[in-house]
Design a protein around this nucleic acid. Structure first.
Lengths: 194, 194
DNA sequence: TGTACATCAGTGAACGCGCGTTCACTGATGTAC
DNA sequence: TGTACATCAGTGAACGCGCGTTCACTGATGTAC
């Protein structure tokens, strides 16, 4: 029918379509400006303002979606992991997610990330909880808030270093050659220092 | 004399002055665009092109200077640290440096960081070497490349999380209340897992 | 010591760009009677 | 069931902005003879 040919004046679910458009742009490595997102969604530059207060609000929604995606990825890795290997498996999944979606990853955790009122802070904390959830359950005696933060920082730092290419010169393929696993293993299996 | 009043047509050391101008802008939290840097240095928008090929080259020079600054800070912290506390002391110094210069820190390690040919990759690796230098010397048996990368990632990740405000909701002052020390300590003093 | 001239280091106007956002609008939808 | 009208969801032209970079230039410096 002509329903399919002529784009409806009323889009139906432009709100979601805008999010998808932004994610598509990010997947191509482009910064999702308001205009670019609207263009991608096949809509005039002003249309997004019906659904988002401004540029920041739209990007915040995208960032939250990215964090949801990371959480799902971590949960899947956690479910598939052998006993005692949950943290290492999730670390690899974390870094891979960052590498697969570098621009999105920066938006989620980087400087252009919109401010706290959009709930990104707590969404990020949930990432930490997912990361450490199984460990807290399996080995509660060694699980402390400080340790949890340390693990998150370790994994997040690895992801940052890899995604920004800071290891590229010495190590071109840290996911492929097992460097990530080994670095995490090395940090988790140290004996007491003092 | 009038030497001091009228700005010389030939600046003298515009190259260095441009770097200082960029750092001053960064210290104020502004992005140093080419035009803004020139403006700040009291010079026409085109003047920087005498000294830097383009925007990227100038920012790369700024980033390298930032990395030098971080290295000096780490070395000072290392020198002042009690035996066995070098890594923790340097972690605190690392995070503090990031908090003191958030925009510069992002430029050094973030998405806008110019690509590898400007030598930032290797400069970053030197940061790792400074971080782990004393440990390699004091306890060579536990020092491995994997462990070194893990330590760097841990500290770098903490700095990222703090500077981007991702801990702000649960922990408003992680440097003041010792959270950083405790998280690093917790990671370094674990007993073997398997 | 004086002069001609090449080179160096800056100026300043202008370009085209994409951006976020404003404004007044119009076509489509839904609801009350 | 039909109609009037409010509301909703989009359009499209225009704004002012700062940006990186181009171009042709000019004033200052240094060097060879």
């Amino acid at each position: 029918m002509s329903e399919l040919e002529k784009p409806a004046y009323h889009h139906g679910d432009l709100r979601a379509a805008l999010l998808d458009a932004a994610l598509a742009l990010l997947a191509e490595g482009q910064e999702p400006s308001l205009r670019a997102v609207a263009r991608r969604a096949g809509v005039s530059p002003m249309a997004p303002y019906r659904h988002y207060a401004d540029r920041e609000a739209l990007l915040a929604a995208v960032a939250v979606r990215g964090i949801e995606g990371l959480k799902s990825t971590l949960e899947a890795a956690d479910a598939d992991a052998a006993p005692g290997q949950a943290v290492v498996a999730q670390a690899v999944a974390y870094v891979r997610y960052a590498c697969d979606h570098p621009v999105l990853f920066r938006l989620m955790f980087g400087p252009s990330r919109p401010s706290a009122e959009h709930g990104i802070c707590s969404a990020a904390q949930e990432v930490k909880d997912v990361l450490l959830g199984r460990l807290a359950h399996e080995a509660p005696q060694r699980f402390t808030p400080d340790y949890a933060l340390g693990c998150w920082a370790l994994i997040h730092g690895l992801a940052q270093l890899v995604v920004e290419g800071l290891l590229a010169e010495t190590d071109p393929d840290p996911l492929g050659n097992g460097l990530i696993e080994r670095a995490v293993q090395a940090m988790l299996t140290r004996t007491a220092e003092a």
